[in-house]
Structures are given as structure tokens and as C-alpha cells.
């Protein structure tokens, strides 16, 4: 859904077609944040009961204090702000986001944040932070889904929402395949009480 970056109305329309329940507004590069802040400050009437904002993981400007201040400005409009662990340099700066900060498990390309053991030290520094469980990321690390199980066992108490899709060969999010739906089902059945965010259009809407 990279073609929708920065187009907030289009992201909302697309999410609404899937469900009026939950949305994740993705500001994947730091320069997109001011535009998102302006959009949300304009007071749009949104139908969603759960609003997540995916914080930037690209084009980071190198001033983490400024980044956190921008995210804190967005926090009143959202239930959650998702960050990639590998983008966080000084965890203490992010404490100001409290319970709204969610840390997402990473895919196999990354060198940290992939497993329970790699995530737990960061959660120790950010005790109020929740867990955003990216199911295909855990599959990319371990296609047997054992790592997925370990993540839920260790971090299940913090679970706030799920990211769902399949992954292409180069590990980009693509619509959930029938095979992955079957493979992920036992894992997803442990997450019935939290929103599931599709990171690629579900089949039928793709």
C-alpha cells in the first residue's frame, strides 16, 4: 500500500472498505509526520473505534527528541503508535508515549527485534509499551511458527494489535494467501480480542 503514503483520505477510504472498526495510518517516513499532524488536527470525523499510527521507520532525520515530540503530538488522536525496535536509539525518550507506544516484532532481514529474547530488553526499558504482533514477520524468522508461539507466550500480556498479511520473496507485505491463512490460524486464534490490521489489501479487495 506504498502508493497511498501521505494520502490520508485514501488510507481511510481503503480501511473503511475492509472494516469500520480499526485503522492504521502509516507515516512510514519521518517527513510525512507534519502532514499527518495537520490532517488529524483539522478534526476529521472518523468512524473507527481503534486508531493506530505507524511511526516512521524510513528517512529518519536523526533528531530523536524531535521525532518523539512529533509522535507525542499525535498521541491524543490515536489508541496506539507503532514503532520498529531497530529505529529506536534512546528508549528512555519514548517513555513519554506511555501505554500508547507499541513495539513491533521485526522480519528476518533485521538484526534485532525479531524474537522474544531480542525484544524483552527494550520492553524492560519501556515498561508501559504494548506489543504489536506482526504475524508474517515472525513467519519470516521461523516458518514453523515456533517463534510466533514464543512471542505470544512471552509478550502476550502486552499484546494490543496484530499485523496480518503474507510476505513476498523480498519480504514486502502482500495480500494474505490461503496457505498462510491456514498456517497462521492457530496463532491468530490466540489473538481474538485485539484488532487485526491488514498491511496489504485482503483477498477480494486486492
Amino acid at each position: 500500500m506504498a502508493d497511498q503514503r501521505g494520502d490520508w483520505l485514501r488510507q481511510i477510504k481503503m480501511a473503511w472498505e475492509v472494516s469500520p472498526f480499526a485503522i492504521e495510518l502509516s507515516a512510514l517516513s519521518e517527513p510525512e509526520l507534519p502532514s499527518l499532524a495537520s490532517f488529524l488536527a483539522s478534526g476529521p470525523s472518523l468512524p473507527f473505534r481503534y486508531i493506530s499510527i505507524h511511526g516512521p521507520s524510513k528517512d529518519l532525520q536523526g533528531d530523536e527528541e524531535k521525532l518523539v515530540a512529533e509522535l507525542a503530538g499525535l498521541a491524543p488522536y490515536a489508541n496506539a503508535i507503532v514503532m520498529h525496535p531497530d529505529t529506536i536509539e534512546e528508549p528512555a525518550l519514548f517513555q513519554v508515549l506511555g501505554h500508547k507506544l507499541l513495539l513491533e516484532n521485526m522480519d528476518s532481514r533485521k538484526e534485532l527485534g525479531r524474537t522474544r529474547q531480542e525484544l524483552e530488553p527494550l520492553f524492560a526499558e519501556l515498561p508501559d509499551a504494548g506489543f504489536c504482533f506482526d504475524v508474517p514477520h515472525s513467519w519470516s524468522v521461523d516458518p514453523t511458527m515456533e517463534i510466533a508461539g514464543e512471542l505470544l507466550e512471552g509478550l502476550g500480556a502486552r499484546l494490543r494489535h496484530v499485523h496480518l498479511s503474507s510476505l513476498s520473496e523480498d519480504l514486502h507485505h502482500v495480500p494474505l494467501t490461503v496457505e498462510h491463512e491456514a498456517l497462521f490460524r492457530p496463532t491468530l486464534e490466540r489473538c481474538l480480542d485485539v484488532p487485526w490490521i491488514f498491511e496489504a489489501p485482503p483477498r477480494g479487495l486486492a
Binding site: L152, A157, R190, C191, L192, D193, V194
Partner: peptide
């Protein structure tokens, strides 16, 4: 058989 959602509810 909804132990984990139950645990989060009571958490």
C-alpha cells in the same frame, strides 16, 4: 479455550 484473551481481560 480462550485462555490468552481471558488473561488479557483480567490483566
Amino acid at each position: 479455550n480462550a485462555v490468552e484473551p481471558g488473561a488479557r481481560t483480567f490483566g
